[in-house]
Every structure is written in structure tokens, then in C-alpha cells.
Amino acid sequence: MTQAPDPICPLCLRPIPPDVAQSRHHLVPKLRGGKGGPTVLLHAICHAEIHATLNETELARDYPTIETLRAHPRLQKFVQWVALRPPGFRSRVPGPRRGR
């Protein structure tokens, strides 16, 4: 019996191994009308970077799709940086929300 391939993170396009922290991202935040709306499975580090970069209003108004998220300049830099890391990479230094 063959094992199903690891899911692919739509933000960084790297596989999400089963032993790596992962989380669901509501494309439109629940508090901004996205309850029951579409979600995507991301690496936890990718999800954290989205929320460190954008607040819920910005996410709902300007970044409600993976395509718009990937086009954000800071998230583009993050994707380039994290692409050089292995799929199981975890940040050891959880930081506070950074300035925009």
C-alpha cells in the first residue's frame, strides 16, 4: 500500500510532513465574515508569518486569496527565505508581531 504524498503548503509551495506543525488559515478571518468560508492548510511558520504581517481587516479586505497573499512584498521575501529551508523547518525564536 502506498502512502499518500504530503500536502503542499500553498504559501511556500513546500511539502508539509506529518511531523511538522501545521494549521488551517481562514482566507477571510472568521471575525470579518469568513466563518464557514474557505480555509487552506499551511505550515505553522507560514501561518504565523501571515498574521505577523497583516491584521484581520487587511486580510479580509485586500488579501482574501493565496494569490494575493503571495503577492504581498513582505510575504514574497518570507517565501524566498523559507524556500531555502527543509520542509520540516521550525523557527526556534518565536517573535512578537513585527512592525509593518
Score class of each variant (00 low, 15 high):
Pro7Leu: 04
Lys30Ser: 12
Thr53Met: 10
His25Ile: 02
Pro87Leu: 11
Asp19Ile: 04
Val82Leu: 15
Thr57Leu: 12
His72Tyr: 05
Thr65Arg: 11
Pro15Arg: 02
Pro10Glu: 10
Leu41Pro: 04
His43Val: 01
Leu69Phe: 14
Trp81Glu: 10
Gln80Ala: 14
Arg92Glu: 11
Arg24Cys: 10
Val20Ala: 15
Val93Arg: 15
Glu49Ile: 01
Val40Trp: 06
Arg92Lys: 12
Arg32Met: 14
Arg98Cys: 01
Arg92Gly: 15
Pro29Met: 09
His43Trp: 08
Cys12Ser: 09
Leu41Glu: 06
Thr39Val: 12
Pro5Lys: 07
His72Glu: 12
Arg98Ser: 10
Val93Phe: 12
Gly34Gln: 07
Gly34Leu: 13
Pro94Leu: 08
Leu11His: 05
Gly99Arg: 14
Arg92Ser: 04
Gly95Met: 09
Ala21Pro: 12
Asn55Lys: 13
Leu27Arg: 14
Asp19Phe: 12
Pro18Tyr: 07
Thr57Met: 07
Lys35Val: 00
Thr2Lys: 08
Ala52Gly: 11
Asp6Ser: 15
Val79Ala: 14
Arg97Leu: 09
Gln80Thr: 03
Glu67Met: 00
Arg90Gly: 08
Arg85Ile: 00
Ala83Tyr: 06
Ile66Trp: 11
Ile8Pro: 04
Leu69Pro: 13
Ser23Val: 02
Cys12Leu: 06
Phe89Cys: 08
Glu49Asp: 07
Lys35Pro: 00
Gln22Lys: 15
Pro15Tyr: 01
Arg74Cys: 02
Ala60Met: 10
Pro29Leu: 09
Asp19Trp: 12
Leu11Cys: 09
Trp81Pro: 03
Arg97Val: 06
Pro87Met: 07
Cys9Gln: 03
Arg14Glu: 10
Cys9Asp: 13
Thr68Ala: 15
Val79Arg: 15
Cys12Pro: 11
Thr53Tyr: 08
Ile16His: 12
His26Gly: 01
Pro10Met: 06
Ala60Ser: 15
Gly36Glu: 03
Pro64Leu: 05
Gly34Pro: 07
Ala83Gly: 15
Arg14Ile: 00
Leu31Gln: 13
Ile45Phe: 03
Gln22Met: 08
Ala44Arg: 13
Pro7Ala: 05
Cys12Phe: 11
Leu27Ser: 12
Ala4Trp: 00
Gln3Thr: 00
Arg98Ile: 01
Asp6Arg: 01
Cys46Tyr: 09
Pro94Thr: 03
Ile50Asp: 14
Pro73His: 06
Leu11Val: 02
Pro7Met: 02
Glu56Gly: 10
Val79Pro: 10
Pro10His: 05
Leu54Thr: 01
Leu69Tyr: 12
Arg14Phe: 01
His25Glu: 13
Arg100Met: 02
Glu58Thr: 04
Thr57Asp: 15
Glu58Phe: 01
Val82Lys: 15
Ser23Met: 13
Glu58Val: 00
Lys77Ile: 00
Leu42Gly: 03
Gly37Asn: 06
Asp19Tyr: 09
His47Asp: 13
Gly88Glu: 09
Ala52Arg: 14
Met1Gln: 02
Tyr63Leu: 10
Val40Pro: 04
Leu13Gln: 13
Lys77Met: 09
Ile50Gly: 08
Gly99Val: 00
Pro7Gln: 02
Val40Leu: 11
Leu27Lys: 09
Lys35Met: 02
Cys46Gln: 05
Pro7Gly: 05
Pro10Asp: 03
Gly88Ile: 00
Pro73Ile: 00
Leu69Asp: 10
Glu49Arg: 15
Leu11Ser: 08
Ile50Glu: 10
His25Pro: 04
Cys9Pro: 03
Leu11Ala: 04
Asn55Thr: 03
Arg92Tyr: 00
His51Phe: 07
Pro64His: 07
